[in-house]
Simulated scan of single mutants.
Amino acid sequence: MLTDPSVTVVRATLPTVGTAIEEISRRFYERLFAAHPELLRDLFNRGNQASGAQRQALAGSIAAFATYLVDHPDDRPDVMLSRIAHKHASLGVRAAQYPVVHEHLFAAIAEVLGDAVTPDVARAWDEVYWLMANALIAIEGRLYAEQDVVEGAVWREWEVAARTEQTPDVASFLLRPADGGPAPAFKAGQYVSVQVQLADGARQIRQYSLTGAPDAATRSIAVKRVHGTNGSPDGEVSRHLHTHIRAGDRLHVSAPYGDLVLKADGAPLLLASAGIGCTPILAMLEELAAAGHPHPVTVVHGDRSPETHALRATHEALTAKLPDGTAHFWYEQGAGHHSGLADLTDVPITPGTRAYLCGPLPFMRAMREQLLAKGIAAADIHYEVFGPDLWLARS
């Protein structure tokens, strides 16, 4: 891992870099997109760039990785690296792109920190970057091999077999490979990337959880239309899918990726979601129900109302199929199981429970705090963030 001299330098400069890391991230993306506008057009999420969310996520991951190396010089944060690598693989990121990132990231560091970037500082942080980059390249290579695809060539044309309006803002799409071949296997909880060509020619990409596999030839996703808030624009891809895509249309869809995967080994399970975060949970429930899973499964979901709870009937039906499954739904408006925000205070949680969380960050933070207070080990609490992972950036 980090050499001893680099550990000393990185530890000493972490406060300075940490203070400036968001500005470094901003300058980095400005330089990168000026030199390679095709990356913003066809790879990076333009909405996350406009909101600053991607800059925050990059800053958080770099700071977290460097801090971990200093605190654990003989180890590396594999959980964080795996999460990033799965996202990269779903986008078709290639090893050849890492030197490009290095060029513009270190130019941004020099611009922001100026004379503070001595040769020793540059060497130490260069070591940090390549430790992270080479680890990601190796993991991504394994992920491509597992899907039997050439590096970066994750895309396949799929046909929309059916579209169903689940709520005014959520539509589900049943997909099948356009070439008539088999659909790739996936693990419950994983997602696919969907690439669409927009009116301005951009090929924007978004990730959507697989909600199930009705049969060997089809896969299903559910897409929530993203409405802009606080001056941010509507979601480009979700708007396109809702407005233009119908049965018979075709989409470019990636192989399945994602590290929030169900492990059903007999431990009690908690599957907690809010809003459209129910989508990976539904795939988990489908798998458990198909296997006749006999062990305790507690299902928790929070939503604005029963009418906005996408795939609510499926959520209830799959839970009911489990021999020891219980559902607790909270709605801020309208009649339901419980009123208000999701709350585990009165929900029995069996010792040794393994928890899977998906939803907005405030929801997941609240669930995690309550689970820890109930004695659930931090290592047994797993989560999925839709969009840039800001958990570390806002910790």
Results as ranks from 00 to 15, higher is better:
A247W: 05
E23R: 12
A378R: 15
S273M: 09
D179L: 07
F44M: 01
A202M: 03
K87M: 04
V297D: 00
A264G: 13
V79T: 13
R203V: 07
V128K: 10
D148C: 12
R26D: 15
Y356D: 02
R55F: 10
D148Y: 10
M367Q: 07
L131W: 14
R11M: 01
N48W: 00
G189Y: 04
A342Q: 06
T8C: 01
S209I: 01
D115P: 00
G141V: 09
T13R: 09
H301M: 11
T243Q: 13
L318T: 10
Q147W: 01
P351S: 11
R312E: 14
T8S: 04
I109S: 03
S220W: 02
T319I: 05
T13H: 06
D115T: 01
E307F: 11
D343V: 13
V128M: 11
T211I: 14
R304L: 06
H88W: 06
V150Y: 08
G375M: 02
H315M: 15
A378L: 14
I281Q: 09
T67M: 00
L105M: 10
D42Y: 00
A289Y: 02
A95I: 12
D78G: 11
G340F: 07
T298P: 00
Q49M: 11
S25D: 08
R250V: 09
A217E: 14
W330C: 02
K263P: 04
M1C: 13
K87A: 09
P5Q: 08
E140L: 10
W391E: 07
G47A: 07
F329Y: 15
F33Q: 00
L14T: 11
L39C: 02
A267G: 02
S220Y: 01
P168H: 12
T229F: 05
L43C: 04
G141C: 04
Q54W: 06
Q333N: 11
L371D: 08
E38N: 10
Q56L: 00
R31L: 12
G302C: 05
G248N: 06
L392K: 12
E286M: 12
H240T: 09
L113H: 00
C358Y: 02
D42K: 04
G352D: 06
V79A: 14
A317K: 13
S193F: 03
T314C: 08
R206I: 05
D4E: 02
T314H: 14
T350R: 03
S254D: 06
V237Y: 04
Q49A: 11
L361V: 06
A264M: 12
F33L: 02
M132R: 08
S273D: 12
E140W: 03
S339N: 02
S238F: 07
